[in-house]
Design a protein around this nucleic acid. Sequence first.
DNA 1: ATAGGGTTAG
Length: 497
Amino acid sequence: MKSIRKFYHALAPTSSETFNYYISILRRCAIDGDICEARRAHFDMKLSGFPYLGLGNKLIDAYLKCGAVDDARKIFDEMPQPHVVSWNAMISYYIRSRRSQEAVNLYHRMVFHGVVADEYTFSCVLKAFADLGYVEEGRRVHGRLVINGLGSGNMFVGSALVDMYVKFGKLNEARAVFDQFGEKDVVLVTALIVGYVQNGEDRRAVLLFCDMVNGGVQANEFTFASVLIACGNLTELQSGMTIHGLIFKTGFECRNASQTSLLSMYSKCGLVDESLTVFSGIANRNTVTWTAMISCLVYHHREELALSVFRDMLRDSVMLNAFTLSTALRGCSTLALFEQGKSIHGSAIKIGLDRDRYVSAALIDIYGKCGRVGMARAVFDDLLGIDLVSINSMIYGYAQNSEGSKAVELFNMMIQSGLEPNHVTFTGVLSACSNAGLLEEGWRLFSSITNDHGLVPSIDHYACMVDLLGRAGKLGEAEELITKIKSPDKVLWRDIA
DNA sequence: ATAGGGTTAG
């Protein structure tokens, strides 16, 4: 190799043969991810006085494919006038590494230097805006795209735009972009289906899926995965099963995403056995697959089986994430399995997920249920931010352990910090009052549901109040309260009987 | 040469 290089250096440094020689080396580095060879070639060029910046695009590409951002960035910063391809390569690297802000910064520098952005640039930078929630800037760039005539021609740009508006919750604008495309491809349609699903428009998602199939666009595993969520949310078993058939017909039955979503669809439709069948047919189970199965079993009160599946998962050394931990904890919580809960807490600490808000809420819940309010409170106090579900769990913990005044105290603290309580909060704090016999406090809270928070008292809230009044021996007032409800529930009468 | 969509939880 060395001698070949010497030979090439003997030629004029800019000769096209030398040029092609380096191009072929760098291309190979990019394919093999061979960073050592890339550095060697780079060094060689420098040493021989080869004008290597002329190959800057290739060098940057090679370095980025090897994962060596810093090397790539150094070349990039050395280039007096980087080509738009270089800018795009750097920007797309930052997007792929979820360093969206750096991508945006680079884009701004690019504009400042007068480099004209192309379709590649836009498809990347729109994703960064979506990530960072930069609504105004996203809109501005969309406007510039339209002026440049790039708005409705390129499918990559189109789906990036649809995805961006979807992430901003602006479905009408996403649809407007979508409608500008005569021919639609699978990614463009999937982006909008996902948008409908994530914004609670499940019916529209299913209809769009049908349009797509009828229009001759072939769905893939991502499409199936998204539309199945919609079927599950609508508990439309029939549609779900039709799509199950379609998955088989088009050969996507081995794809993880569509299978996991299928499992979940059956779960939401109440067919646990179907979920188990789908699960057993999945060959390469990942964290999401396992978690979906455990979650299905916990939801349908098959906690023992859920925890056994969780143990299988641990035995398989599959990575756990916050979803897994919180779901497994919910399973333990129903059975009040304190030791198991503590052990999962240990795992959470070990992988640094003990402060995740879902995990924390589940921990507070299980410790509360197991009578360890102090441990629940320790998790609560360790939380980084205020979270409604965690506060609700903590209030429930106090309520279950007859520490009514502490529940009320926490409730007041919550109001002072400006967080709005919901129905669950009131059920918790009212049952705490009931357990502790805090009559006046209970009345005050009950009236504040409507007066201060604009909520309508639920049947649970009435039940708590009736319980509270009954315990205080105020049967007359309890009866009066019941007559105020338009359709009295039998439970209420049983409580004071 | 550089680019777009997905699955699991209160």
